[in-house]
């Protein structure tokens, strides 16, 4: 009757972080109520999701809660996912970002978050299978290389937009720059990023 309580599977290996059709298959399984598909999706995506969420919320306790909410939402709303709107990986990452930003917006002060962001330490992932580890490193390397090609001021505003959820006006106020300058930096930076990722095969 309650046998499910006794099944505690171990952590599975990670999957490549680039958008893959495999994730779409997991979503299909989840739509049919297959919790094994949810487990497979978790194994493939959790490190990316957790990394994004932790970077935004800044502490492990909130990150745990948000990540749990993200997969609960995936479980409940997989039927709403439409492949024509984008890849499953993009859907999940954007959902994770949105949930994490909701979390920090519900906090009393942003100052607390900024302090915490400074002390988030990078932790090393459990070892992947060799080929998966290579693909993962390549994907991360391509993204980080692409980010490195941006001018520092472009990278700054893009990262602040993505990880802090600040509007153009808020960025302008925060950085003491004209609104037009902020918009231009983001636009040029994103264009450059798109070109770099296209060369790297990730966009």
């Amino acid at each position: 009757m309650l046998f499910f309580l006794m099944s505690m599977a171990g952590l599975g290996g990670a999957r490549p972080v680039r958008p893959v059709a495999e994730w779409d298959g997991f979503i299909q399984g989840i739509r049919q109520g297959d919790d094994r598909a949810l487990g497979a999706l978790y194994d493939a995506s959790s490190r990316l999701v957790y990394s994004v969420v932790l970077r935004i919320v800044g502490n492990a306790a909130d990150a745990d809660e948000v990540v749990q909410d993200v997969y609960a939402q995936v479980w409940r709303s997989a039927g709403d996912y439409a492949t024509e709107r984008g890849s499953a990986s993009a859907w999940i990452v954007m959902m994770a970002r949105s949930r994490a930003l909701d979390k920090i917006r519900s906090r009393a002060t942003r100052e607390q978050r900024e302090t915490q962001l400074d002390v988030v330490a990078e932790t090393h992932a459990k070892e992947d299978q060799p080929e998966q580890a290579v693909m993962k490193r390549q994907a991360r390397s391509i993204i980080q290389s692409a980010m490195a090609t941006l001018a520092p001021e472009q990278r700054q505003v893009i990262e602040m937009s993505f990880f802090m959820g600040l509007t153009h006006s808020e960025l302008a106020a925060r950085l003491g720059q004209p609104l037009g300058t902020i918009k231009t930096r983001i636009r040029l930076g994103m264009n450059k990023l798109r070109d770099s990722l296209a060369v790297g095969g990730l966009a």
Partner: peptide
């Protein structure tokens, strides 16, 4: 969406807690 979601890979890599997986799956079940 595809491009913006790629920005997530710029986050420092972090390992989720071991118990999180089972908690999520057990809750779903």
């Amino acid at each position: 969406t595809e491009l913006v979601a790629q920005l997530g890979h710029a986050a420092p890599l972090a390992e989720p807690p071991a118990l999180l997986r089972s908690r999520i799956l057990n809750a779903a079940r």
